[in-house]
Design a protein around this nucleic acid. Structure first.
Lengths: 124, 124
DNA sequence: GGCACCTAGTTCCCATCGGGAACTATACTT
DNA sequence: AAGTATAGTTCCCGATGGGAACTAGGTGCC
């Protein structure tokens, strides 16, 4: 029973409140998660680098986001006790795979942003 | 100037805090938005139908979610002043297109749910 | 020694969001 | 007059997100 078959964990329906899929969707369908995973797509990054890439995120929220992704097995956190402390975040295989749909969502937004009502686009 | 070219609205970068892309990502990268748009993919649905499909959502949050999607031009809200009041929600062309990446995200979660750490999967 | 600096956070406070339960409004049915 | 149905709204409260300031371990500078 190392890897339960499809039936073991319920109906696998994101629309079912009790299905664990719901929690996973909640984790991934999140602005900061989508951006953080994307930032790690090109390779491992340090806390400060991710923080700089995700413009506008506060250190508190970034810590929380990364911890959640780590708990759910999407990223690894490696501490290098070097001269100035060095912590590196990297995608797990699962996290790498999750990047695909998230990248498509990010790309879709960038491509279609002009189609949104102009009132909502400040410098439109 | 009916439809501004790519430059008019900034750099089109979801990673830029000031880019309107950020707001759109925040809207779409959301559990309830992703589920609600998916529920409308098969055709127009009424408030009660959507509520029943999105198991666990409260009427307050559903109202808020639908209003936000409407404001951003992803869905239409049509009132039929029939016998018992009848309100129908339907996808706009923009909303229809947004369903593609969202469906991929939902599907990815359902397909890969078993790969997540088992501690987090209640009935795993 | 004392002070500023660097990295990676943590802590505090507050505004907004999300969730449950109950209530409202309108109109028809019995 | 009471009950049913639809589409919400309102209230309360705990969780989440955001800004600003502070902490901790260690280095280099004077």
């Amino acid at each position: 029973m190392t890897h339960a078959p499809t039936e073991a964990c319920g109906p696998r329906d994101v629309y079912a409140a009790a299905c664990p899929c719901r929690d996973m969707l909640d984790l991934l369908a999140n602005k900061w998660s989508a951006l953080a995973l994307g930032a790690l797509e090109e390779g491992p990054r340090r806390f400060g680098e991710i923080r700089a890439r995700l413009q506008g995120i506060s250190p508190k929220v970034l810590t929380h986001t990364l911890r959640r992704l780590e708990e759910h097995g999407l990223i690894d956190r490696t501490i290098y006790p070097a001269v100035p402390l060095h912590v590196e975040y990297s995608l797990t295989p699962l996290g790498h795979d999750a990047c695909e749909p998230l990248a498509q969502l990010r790309d879709w937004v960038e491509v279609n942003i002009d189609r949104f009502p102009k009132v909502l686009l400040p410098a439109g």
